[in-house]
């Protein structure tokens, strides 16, 4: 049994396109039939990963593109594949955030990828054809 492609878009890695990327992810998750809470969690994970790419992937060069593909794999499992052609970077290896329970000491930042990984267990990174590829499986 082969998978099904739901959507495929490629746009510049800029915040102004976040809404379009997220809309494609939400539409795909709705098409798959996830419950509202799960769709919200998928949206959050996708936003955090995309924003991370917008901020870091092309910092040493002209801003490139991000490609977002959604669909199901051969086992009918939902996936989102987010790729960029920026510098090799595995955001999943970033330091865990500061979860200190003291307001004055707690650092601001590092939360995004942590939230994505807490909400979606199966997120993997690989580098292929000079691309950083993050695959979210739900």
């Amino acid at each position: 049994m082969t998978g099904e492609l739901f959507s495929q878009i490629q746009l510049p890695a800029k915040l102004e396109y976040l809404g379009i990327f997220i809309a494609s992810v939400k539409d795909a998750a709705e098409k798959y039939g996830f419950a509202r809470t799960r769709i919200s969690e998928i949206e959050l994970a996708a936003e955090e990963i995309l924003v991370n790419i917008f901020n870091y992937a092309y910092q040493n060069a002209e801003t490139g593109c991000v490609q977002v593909i959604t669909g199901t794999d051969g086992n009918r499992r939902f996936f989102i594949e987010i790729s960029d052609t920026g510098i090799p970077f595995n955001m999943l290896q970033a330091d865990p955030p500061d979860l200190t329970s003291d307001i004055s000491l707690r650092k601001i930042g590092g939360l995004g990828v942590f939230l994505a990984r807490e909400l979606i267990n199966d997120i993997s990174y690989y580098r292929e054809d000079n691309k950083n590829i993050l695959k979210i499986r739900v």
Binding site: S40, E43, L44, E47, E48, V51, I103, S104, R106, I108, G109, L111, G112, L115
Partner: peptide, 20 residues
């Protein structure tokens, strides 16, 4: 209805300011 880490950072910054 929805908040991402960018919103959490705003909340934390305000809380720090109030604590100061």
């Amino acid at each position: 209805d929805y908040i991402s880490s960018a919103g959490l950072r705003v909340i934390l910054a305000a809380a720090k300011k109030m604590k100061e």
